[in-house]
Amino acid sequence: MRYLRLLGAFYRTSIQTDMEYRADFFTRIIASLLGLLTTIGSLSVAFTYTTNIKGWSFSHVMVLLAVYYLMDGLIETFIAPNMRNIMAQVREGTLDFVLLKPVVPQFMATLRTINIWRIANILVALGLAGYSISRLSLSVGLSEASSFAITLLAGTAVVYSFWLFLVTLTFWFVRLDNIEQVIWQAFEAGRYPIEIYPYWLRGALTYVIPVAFIITVPAKALTGQLAFSYSFVALGMGCLSILLSSAFWRYGLRFYTGASS
């Protein structure tokens, strides 16, 4: 209860900050649409030469793309701004102030801000999802919707944990801010069906950087290609990843020394 109130205070101030940059919302929408158009454009370039790529039709790839953008929006709205902050704070030593507060540090560090204008990405993604599902004339029932929601939540948890794990590494290797770019790029692999990749890469994208889990699984849930029971397996994996990464974070905190001794 107390933590919910805190979360309210955190989000309120960061939304106030963002209100000063209202124009950002429109640049976001534009950037998001442009990114989407580029991807759809490049896919449609490939699809002008063939009607299916490794068994995926254009419309199915679009559903996948929608999930990709949805996840991207969730990450950029809720997770990424905090994780980037932590890396900067470790570098500048201002993480001290987080640790000095009578609040669980992980809570305060990873949920402190919200990048409200990135909601734009989420809106664009939802629009695309609606459009591509109607193109496929699929009916999305309660079980598809709930299994989609569960797998999406589990995917978000995995992304959060993955990022927390990397951020924790900055306690030892101070300058890892660029790593974000890499994850972002690896994450990009998720916008295409995993089947197009060579065998070994498919393994890496499933187990090392679990892009397949984060994007392909919810996309399959949405189009009714996933057994409902599997969504609970996914949920379990999400919880497990949170537990492991939090433990690692707490361990790493012991090695945080601040910017100056």
Binding site: R2, R5, L6, G8, A9, F10, R12, T13, Q16, T17, E20, E92, G93, T94, D96, F97, L100, K101, P102, V103, M108
Partner: peptide, 29 residues
Amino acid sequence: LSYVLGNRSQLAWDIPAMDSYLVNQAIYE
């Protein structure tokens, strides 16, 4: 406890100090 570091800032850069105070109010209950 309070620990004041002369060369670092706990206040959020882009918003008035008052808003940071309100966050602190919530944090310290």
